[in-house]
Design a protein around this nucleic acid. Sequence first.
DNA 1: CGAAGGATTTTCT
DNA 2: GAAAATCCTTCGT
Length: 204
Amino acid sequence: MFDRTLLERPSLEVAPLLLGALLTCGDVSVRITEVEAYLGADDPGSHSFRGKTKRNATMFGEPGHLYTYFTYGMHVCANVVCSPSGVATAVLIRAGEVVRGIPIAEERRPTAKNFAELARGPARLVTSLGILLADDGDDLASGRVRLDLADAVSPFAQGPRTGVSGAGGTVDFPWRFWIPGDPTVSPYKRSVPKKRAPILDPLG
DNA sequence: CGAAGGATTTTCT
DNA sequence: GAAAATCCTTCGT
């Protein structure tokens, strides 16, 4: 099931609807367990904050398309474009559970020590599925990468977004959504980071 | 288990 | 030229 009208809403409303949904590329499918909403004008952490560029053009287009981007010199991340054309919001897919094509995913992610690590983390999920930078802009209803909202009904938890540095990371907004207790949700940044002050030794 | 540092290149200032 | 919506390895407890 793919309903584009659901995705025409702002990413903050769409994000929880994606939990439990199925993302498929080729012979591998992932059940989405963790996402983050990215807004437009009011969100310094969003790629679309400073207007349209060559990289983020897909975010400004029709909802229900795939927005992929290259980051940290080696990683690709995947988003679902939300909001009507001209309004740039999107939901970053942060983690999921591989439910089909596990042997293929294991081959692509040899460093994964167990099934939960196959797609735990945005770049890992993209690697397991085999999503490419070239898939940017694809229609999730008919493209190489597809989204199925059929089972997207799960209880969800909500908390601060993670991994966002710069201006967008100085304030914690509850723009991250996940399925509580799921082993595939990123463990290294919790909903309430410990964030202890560094322990200083007065004697040096 | 947690903290810290390196890898590596695109993008925008 | 600096920062970046990350991941992996290593080292310490």
